[in-house]
Design a protein around this nucleic acid. Structure first.
Lengths: 200, 200
DNA sequence: ACGAAAATGGTACGGCTGTATCATAAAAAA
DNA sequence: TTTTTTATGATACAGCCGTACCATTTTCGT
């Protein structure tokens, strides 16, 4: 039949253009025409691959979440061959901080989506925003593993620590993003709290 | 000369309409006409009191920050006649959580402004977003006071704890806002971490 | 009273938005 | 080669946006 173009790949390409444009102008200010121009295609093509803007936004969010997942996994892998729980946890939490351009972009857009989800029920229904965070389960699992190996201080509430650390990491990330704090200071705070949990 | 209307009060009134409309539709979706309708005045009047939309947004942010400051102060006052540092700190941190409609609104819009400030330098220059948080100084002061009275565990890094607690409170607030977590669970996590810092 | 300044209303303009329509180029299947 | 489906392009439309302009009412200083 037609020119045989890989739809999935093309959609991803357009989603990447959306992310780039949104990083420059802010998600609220990016229109279909901006995405088309950024991707170097015609407006009609963007409409063809995503019937509506809402579909494009939803796909963009999924794309972003996927890329973030890969990023975290890569960081964890890079933490060493057989890293202890502490190193894995540190890699996990640090990966969420906006230290370089890519993570800044991610944090910026993910927060944009979160804000939109407050008033947009289609976005709010997306699992990345709605579900009890998968990161929480992962982190709690790592902490339990550390506790079972006797690495943690006695009396540590694993669930409360997991939730608290994730919230802290997210909050620190936001303050770094808006320029209230620099990345190194945020890292130092996170490390202090890990030192506090793991017995010296 | 003219009808002698209190400008400051009228501007505040319009800013409150902005906040209400933004809470309903999202800050990104609210226009001058929405603000005018919400305030029950003509579009021209909104333009008259704020020459441009940007000025309106800036004033709205200041208004929001002021209201939040008052809210926190009220909560702290309500904490008791001569409350200990622990009670004051708890009131401080809890006040930031989106537990009722007013605090949800505040958290929602403040986050919206934070996102906008990433790509809007006029917003980024606003002290509420740019400055080293005043809350951090306050909280650190309270913690120091507690430490001097021997209420804290030994080896507590006051600065790291202050920064961490604030970031955690903000992060928890966001996850409550987007429906990832309920307010009670967020409160419980915060209390756990206060218990951890204050010696039992 | 009168004029001037302040406050308010009505409305129009240019530009941008997302979407729909019409047309056509490309390529695989027959 | 013809047909048929997919992919792409150009353009138009209705609606909303922030802003500007023109007019008018209101009220205070003189």
């Amino acid at each position: 039949m037609p020119k045989r173009v890989d739809h999935a790949e093309r959609r991803t390409e357009i989603a990447r253009a959306l992310v780039r444009a949104a990083g420059r102008q802010g998600l609220h200010a990016v229109g279909m025409r901006d995405v088309a121009a950024e991707a170097g295609v015609s407006l009609r093509l963007v409409q063809y691959y995503f019937e509506s803007k809402e579909k494009l936004l939803l796909f963009g969010l999924r794309h972003l979440a996927d890329r973030f997942g890969e990023r975290v996994a890569a960081r964890v892998r890079a933490a060493g061959d057989d890293p202890g729980p502490r190193a894995v946890i540190e890699a996990l939490l640090m990966a969420a901080l906006p230290v370089d351009e890519e993570s800044r972009l991610f944090h910026h857009l993910y927060t944009s989506y979160a804000v939109l989800s407050v008033t947009d029920e289609a976005l709010a229904a997306q699992p990345f925003i709605k579900d009890p965070d998968a990161a929480e389960t992962t982190l709690a699992g790592l902490l339990r593993q550390a506790a079972d190996t006797g690495l943690l201080r006695a009396g540590t509430d694993i669930h409360a620590e997991a939730v608290g650390l994730l919230a802290m990491s997210a909050g620190l990330g936001t303050s770094v993003l808006v320029g209230q704090r620099d990345a190194d200071s945020a890292k130092a705070v996170l490390r202090y709290h890990l030192d506090r949990i793991f017995r010296g």
